[in-house]
Design a protein around this nucleic acid. Sequence first.
DNA 1: AATGAATGAGTATTCATTCAT
DNA 2: CATGAATGAATACTCATTCAT
Lengths: 219, 219, 219, 219
Amino acid sequence: MATVTDQPQRRAPRPRADAVRNRERIVAAAVELIVEHGTELPLDEVARRAGVGNATLYRNFKDRGELMRHVVLTVTDRISAHAEQGLAAVEADEADSFGALRTFVHAAADERIGALCPILHATFEHAHPDVVAARDRLTVAVEGLIARARATGQLRSDVGVGDLMVALSQLTRPLPGTGCMDFDRFVHRHLQLFLDGLMTPARSELPGEAATLEALRQE
Amino acid sequence: MATVTDQPQRRAPRPRADAVRNRERIVAAAVELIVEHGTELPLDEVARRAGVGNATLYRNFKDRGELMRHVVLTVTDRISAHAEQGLAAVEADEADSFGALRTFVHAAADERIGALCPILHATFEHAHPDVVAARDRLTVAVEGLIARARATGQLRSDVGVGDLMVALSQLTRPLPGTGCMDFDRFVHRHLQLFLDGLMTPARSELPGEAATLEALRQE
Amino acid sequence: MATVTDQPQRRAPRPRADAVRNRERIVAAAVELIVEHGTELPLDEVARRAGVGNATLYRNFKDRGELMRHVVLTVTDRISAHAEQGLAAVEADEADSFGALRTFVHAAADERIGALCPILHATFEHAHPDVVAARDRLTVAVEGLIARARATGQLRSDVGVGDLMVALSQLTRPLPGTGCMDFDRFVHRHLQLFLDGLMTPARSELPGEAATLEALRQE
Amino acid sequence: MATVTDQPQRRAPRPRADAVRNRERIVAAAVELIVEHGTELPLDEVARRAGVGNATLYRNFKDRGELMRHVVLTVTDRISAHAEQGLAAVEADEADSFGALRTFVHAAADERIGALCPILHATFEHAHPDVVAARDRLTVAVEGLIARARATGQLRSDVGVGDLMVALSQLTRPLPGTGCMDFDRFVHRHLQLFLDGLMTPARSELPGEAATLEALRQE
DNA sequence: AATGAATGAGTATTCATTCAT
DNA sequence: CATGAATGAATACTCATTCAT
């Protein structure tokens, strides 16, 4: 039915079928390599891993910063989707709100949120519109989860979204030079322990003030 | 002429007075820079910060690996001292055992345990005798603290020393390019939350198995 | 059906209508960019300025050298036309012969004789038949102008066609990175001064020997 | 007599005897290569020509721009010295003032003033204090020569220092890819002709306005 | 025939490490 | 001993040219 109207419109997007694939493969390879070797990885290595020439990488991403930004956007979007999904479940089904938070945290870890550490760099373009938008989307969704968990009295009231996201990023931050496999065994334990610490009743008083993701913008 | 008789007595202690100072300044500068800029920093920068020529650095430390090892040893030793001191206090005075653990964790953060991130690299010589010895010393002391806290029923029984140390290292791991100052504001909050999660009664079941520091030797 | 009979007639002129246009636009873009940014400009830039894909450029011009050659030929031909026109005027109308030389020099500058700077490169194919032919045509015409100006006693007798053409090229040679607009303000002054120096009576003795365009073939 | 006071002060400058030599050799090689191959020359080639490793070049000159700046400063200073020497001769000895200008122009050509074309680039750091100072020094000296030549009625009054310097630079601008040897044969002829055009009585009217070196600052 | 994409070879620059003073 | 300088081996990035659509 709708296909009739679709056909004439397809001319523009088509010729890039393989180019789009290359782009995706480059970002995927970059995520992998950031997880394995940290953010200082050689871009030629990314290109090789993606199975393309190095210049193809540069055709798609003007420089290292742009590639990093796309990695961040890609991973952030995936994680936002998890958060929104969890939030929808909680709102729709009256599900266990803290459980939704737990589920989200572990899912974010599996999505390699630790690879987002570049976003925490002072040198990273925190002000780029796309980055701001992605961060805002994630913040909104996670704040929703947090508000729900707080509303049901399961989450202590003195923690902010930044506390959760920064600790989550740090605890899952990849170990350079490793396949990460061994490390994964421990990470979910640490997350679980941290989540336990977020529950009510609060067992200690927190120093400082609640962090926000915006506050990480350096300078 | 009378001074001649003095000279032989000076042999042992004197010749290294400033050399020792140089060594210490180099390690101190390295710790600072690792905390500020991560482990990939230029060694010339370390030398400059230490106020010595770069060749002096290489005279004292054969290569980057050796310098990193000494950084790790220095920081580990300081942290071990804190752990042992806490343990002694607990054993002597029947003090609050979980409180001792808390005190130790925050002290380790202030001692820049985050500078131990080189130990997280696969390329680091985890098997070097000095490193093994330092790690063992720290492990013993922290295990003592853990045993005490467990004995008084305040620490949940399903966490190992590795869980504590790895999570502690990760949560305090510096963000490259950061003056770290802003970050410090949050770190103690995260540690406090994590510590809350370590208390009894356990609020969740932990996946995987307890980590040990030895297990961090990758590959 | 009747239209079928029309088709055979179209063979010769039609198939190249837009192709010819493309060729011209590419050369024009190249001239512009050489004037603005020197000869080291990226060919992709030329294609973009011409509004065609880069591959189209390569379909028309095998490589950089061939494009440069066509630029040189195009510009040279235009300048030859000016010279021949000036010569015709002088011969027909007994006009002011040195004035014709002046007019030619400024016209050549406006035709962007500075874009001939590729001809100044040692790597340029000075011996290519088309280049030789174009250069000979220009040389003949300019020599005619010079002969006339000399015959009327206005042009000093110790300067050759090469002196004129090389100095003219150099004085109008574009400065890379410049929009050239500002530079244009000065160029005609310098040309005027140089032309004044060509007039009789000679005010100095010239060192070396008269240059010829052929002598620019380096090595 | 003065040597007594000199001896104790010599300690500082000594240890760099060879380093200073390297620096000079790098600049000299850069001038040579700019003359031969233009400003886009590979820096590795400069290092090789200077007989040092490429990193030595970068130790001495942070980047391409800094090397270029020092080339410009070096050449400009040498040329300024010529101009000042000529000016001193004219002022002291009542020598032929236009002859002094001629002598200066040919000397500047031999000092490769044509290699200064980078100074005319829009991308060059025209505002750098050292460049400004060097340009001012040169401008002052040449303006002195011009004023003298004008005062004696030999130089036409409608040309500015910028007219002279830009035309001089352009006429002596090296031909990329050549040993320049052949070209040198012609350059002094063109300069001589241009200089003739500068003499009184003026043989034509000049369009536009007198250029200044400052006006070449792009944008 | 025309295009956008892909590629490899080249160039600038950085940094760990060694050498000469 | 301590130092500044020198070096070669990376790595990021550009561009002429070729390929697939």
